[in-house]
């Protein structure tokens, strides 16, 4: 049986360039992840701030033996955004992760990765994309185990990846909610999303912790945590688990996932460690269990 690998997903939040660079430097040096996705997925306006440190980051990660994948925008609509995604897809020497259909034609069927924001809900969609050059498919986070299992069974010739840690991307919009909350619009945002390094918490009027806002993106308040399901996913044939970066210790998080997959740490022990590392986070696993994504289902 093939060994399930770990993928560090793209950093979805607006971090200062120095923090961005330091984060990936530490990942390169210390995190037991096999694949690292980097690049701006949420808002093209953020990219200029860290564009300069991307090349050295790629180099450092590759030197450390990581496979680097370049993630692309989830909702490119402006001309310059579409052109940028297209030229990256045509010219990059790293594999591209597609997060919007518009980026696919520029790949001209070269091997690529399909990101979790592309709707692959079944084996027929997976087969179509694989025939078009998809070598990796990160499944939408709302898929239940039954669907994951049916897709994995039918798509043996691609790496199938499951969202396993971090706030769950739930929606993308043309409207920037960070800007709206600050009484601004997307065009006049003044980059207020930089104040919330893990997204801005959203509660209900009754104080229930519910969602998180990250610019044009809406995520779950809870952090998906599939540490208890990791071995089951491996036995189903899921070939990679995706860990989404947060300000908590991602080296420790990835080490815990690696240890559980390698059978050297029990999931219950791992869960206790995760609670210490992400002391502020609420965990959820409802989606893979086919129920409300917000729930944590005890097996």
């Amino acid at each position: 049986m093939s060994r399930t690998t770990l993928t560090l997903g793209p950093l979805l939040y607006n971090w200062p360039a120095a923090d961005w660079r330091d984060f990936y430097a530490r990942i390169a040096d210390e995190a037991p992840v096999d694949t690292v996705c980097i690049g701006e997925v949420v808002c093209s306006k953020r990219q200029p701030f860290y564009a300069d440190v991307i090349p050295e980051t790629i180099e450092r990660l590759e030197r450390a033996g990581k496979t680097v994948i370049l993630s692309t925008l989830a909702l490119p609509t402006l001309d310059r955004e579409l052109k940028y995604c297209g030229s990256l897809a045509r010219e990059a020497s790293q594999m591209i992760e597609v997060n919007d259909i518009s980026t696919i034609p520029a790949l001209a069927k070269r091997p690529h990765a399909i990101g979790p924001l592309i709707n692959v809900y079944n084996e027929a969609a997976a087969a179509f994309l694989i025939a078009g050059g998809a070598a990796r498919i990160a499944l939408p986070p709302e898929l239940p185990l039954k669907s994951i299992s049916a897709i994995v069974a039918a798509a043996r010739n691609a790496v199938i990846e499951v969202w396993a840690f971090g706030r769950i991307p739930l929606a993308i919009s043309a409207r920037c909610y960070h800007a709206r909350l600050h009484g601004r619009t997307k065009d006049s945002c003044q980059f207020v999303c930089e104040q919330d390094l893990d997204g801005l918490d959203v509660e209900t009027l009754d104080g229930e912790r519910f969602l998180a806002v990250n610019g044009v993106q809406t995520l779950s308040y809870s952090y998906c945590n599939l540490i208890f399901e990791a071995r089951q996913l491996e036995s189903l044939g899921v070939s990679a688990l995706r860990l989404s970066p947060h300000t908590c210790d991602m080296v420790a998080v990835s080490q815990i996932f690696r240890d559980v997959l390698d059978g050297i740490r029990e999931p219950s022990h791992a869960m206790r460690a995760m609670r210490t590392i992400c002391s502020d986070a609420a965990f959820s696993n409802g989606f893979v269990h086919g129920t409300n994504g917000a729930l944590y289902v005890l097996e």
Binding site: A74, L117, P141, L170, A171, I172, T218, F287, N292
Partner: peptide
């Protein structure tokens, strides 16, 4: 829809039932 249609799991996050599925 204020979110991009077909790319929203808010409903299933709260209820387990989504537009897509």
């Amino acid at each position: 829809c204020v979110m991009t249609e077909g790319r929203c799991s808010l409903s299933s996050y709260a209820t387990g039932q989504s537009p897509n599925m």
